[in-house]
Structure formats: structure tokens, C-alpha cells
Amino acid sequence: MKKMKHHPIMKEHMVEALELPKDLVYHAAIVTVLGNRELTLENYRGMIEYHTDHVCVQTKNCRVTVTGQNLTIPYYTNDEMKITGLIKTIMYE
């Protein structure tokens, strides 16, 4: 039996019409940045790399790499993590 594929545009329309929470539907990471000193990350799978100058986190769709200086993690839980320090770039790979 042929598996039915969801068309991405149709999915978008459905999400818009039903007002569904986008982070749940797209499994997207929520990145909240406060200036260049603080970053909060939600909806991730795990940390790949942690160094003082960069932190690499795996989400469902992509990898988020935060580069900067003196990066520390005030808390790290299953749902949410916070990165503080001097943030220079945020990359989606």
C-alpha cells in the first residue's frame, strides 16, 4: 500500500486554519535570545558538543550551533537549557 505523503504547503495551511501550535507540529526548536548575553533553547534532543567558545545542540530538524566567548550553561534539563556568555553567532546547520 502506498503511504500518503503530506504536502508541505497543505500542512502549513492546515496549521494556519486550525491554529495549531507550530513548535509542536513542525518539531521546531524554540530559541529565545536576550541581547547577546543570554540564550534559552527548548525542544532539543541533546548536546553534541560543549566548549567555552561554542555549543552545538541537536534538534529534530537541524543542529543549532552557538559560538561566542566564555559560554556557560546555568541549567540543563530535558526540556530547556540556557546558555550565557558573549554570544557571537547562532547557526542552523
Partner: peptide, 26 residues
């Protein structure tokens, strides 16, 4: 395996705070 350990901790709901790295030591 520091990152792997941290991921395991978060998966098993072990709260970790004030994580910092100095040279190769966390």
C-alpha cells in the same frame, strides 16, 4: 564522553546547573 553524560543526566531528569568548562574539564 562529557556531552553524552550530560545528555543521559537530562534524559533521566537529573538537574544540572552552573555548568562551565575550564580547558578540557567541566
Amino acid at each position: 564522553g562529557a556531552e553524552r553524560f550530560l545528555n543521559l543526566c537530562s534524559r533521566h531528569e537529573i538537574l544540572i546547573w552552573d555548568l562551565r568548562k575550564e580547558q578540557e574539564v567541566c
